[in-house]
Design a protein around this nucleic acid. Structure first.
Length: 358
DNA sequence: AAGCTATTCAACCGCTCGTTC
DNA sequence: GGAACGAGCGGTTGAATAGCT
């Protein structure tokens, strides 16, 4: 199958569009619809290829396009969706009305990616980079912030909380290190669905790992999405397990899924087959549905999920069990719903450092 | 003011996928 | 089944602009 010549055809104009060309394109599409893009330029009296016309229309001239700065909510949505979907810009764009895939892609490449890198996170996996050099910017920024805070006086408490947050971060980075996949596995493959499977991760019989996992689950809200056979390797004494036909939710920090009709923000959640939405503050999720099934039982919300019921007020979210007395992590990381694999972006957005570095 | 560098984003390129014949 | 084609997608480029020296 050869490539279609399209824009290679000589004599066709390339480069920036003039307002005259824009008018021609808009008027034609308003009257006739775009029909066949290949045929459109001739019919509209444009010396452009159809592809160029399509791009100009979908990325710039379409009447429903929303221009201007991305809101923090949109930023959050992009981060959440990117952590689940990767560079599926068009899919991400379907969750952001009025934004084009091109615009989101540009915003990611020029802003969000840089923020993640500066914070010491891998923008592909949304996980902390475990090599010491990549962590340096984050550590320096933390140190600077700490110093800044120590020189103001509102902040002994804040410094303590910051230290505790940093300790949490360190704990989790160590956990990530313990659970990290073999080096042969590419980050891209890992980011496809963000599921830790037994084949790509070493779930050790290492008491330290489970101890750390358990401690993190108790005093913060850090989640892990695992496949069922991985879960089988975790001693049951570590977890409280609730079970139904399609999912098993293991919740050391006691946080139930809630019916999605009560969910305040569907966009940033995952929905299970039995229409339960996973909110923040869960700890470990796994599926009991088909031991060898590569597919997650969790899915992104669709427009069909946006029923009128979603407008009913959300129930009070139960407080996080917080054995460590760490109000910082609890107050920072609790709150809005999140998808299991999108906790890192949410952590970042809640992290003052994230805004500091922006 | 001029020159240089960094950033942004519209547009292009080349590939893949789905449909038709 | 496979060739041809159209449409769409993600990656990349480069002109315009902003910021800095």
């Amino acid at each position: 199958m050869g490539r279609s010549p399209c824009c290679d055809e000589s004599g066709l104009k390339k480069g920036p569009w003039t307002s005259e060309e824009d008018d021609k394109l808009i008027n034609y599409i308003k009257k006739n619809g775009h029909g066949s893009w290949r045929a459109l330029p001739k019919l509209a009296g444009l010396n452009r290829c159809g592809k160029s016309c399509r791009l100009r229309w979908t990325n710039y001239l379409r009447p429903d396009i929303k221009r201007g700065k991305f809101t923090p909510e949109e930023e959050q949505t992009i981060l959440n969706l990117h952590s689940v979907l990767g560079n599926k810009w068009s899919t991400i764009a379907t969750h952001l009305p009025g934004r084009t895939d091109n615009e989101i892609k540009n915003f990611w490449n020029t802003h969000l990616k840089k923020k993640l890198i500066q914070m010491g996170f891998d923008p592909m996996t949304h996980r902390p980079r475990t090599d010491i050099f990549s962590s340096i910017p984050h550590l320096i920024a933390l140190a600077n912030l700490k110093e800044l805070m120590e020189h103001n006086s509102w902040e002994k408490q804040a410094v303590r909380l910051q230290n505790e947050a940093a300790a949490q971060m360190a704990k989790f980075q160590y956990l990530q290190y313990l659970l990290q996949p073999p080096s042969s596995m590419s980050p891209a493959a890992f980011s496809n669905n963000n599921i830790i499977s037994p084949s790509n991760v070493n779930i050790p019989n290492d008491f330290d790992t489970f101890d750390l996992l358990n401690s993190l689950s108790k005093d913060s809200t850090l989640p892990l999405l695992m496949e069922p056979s991985s879960i089988n390797n975790i001693p049951s004494s570590f977890m409280n397990t609730s079970n139904n036909n399609s999912t098993t939710t293991i919740q050391p920090s006691i946080h139930d899924s809630i019916p999605f009709s009560h969910l305040p923000d569907l966009e940033s959640c995952l929905i299970s087959k039995d229409n339960m939405v996973q909110t923040s503050n869960f700890s470990v999720l796994c599926s009991t549905q088909g031991e060898n099934s590569p597919t997650s039982p969790w899915r992104l919300p669709t427009s069909d999920d946006l029923s009128p019921a979603t407008s009913s007020p959300p129930p009070a979210i139960p407080p996080v069990t917080n054995t460590g007395g760490d109000d910082c992590s609890a107050s920072s990381y609790e709150g809005g719903p999140s998808s299991p694999s999108s906790i890192w972006p949410e952590l970042l957005l809640d992290d003052p450092l994230f805004h500091e570095l922006a």
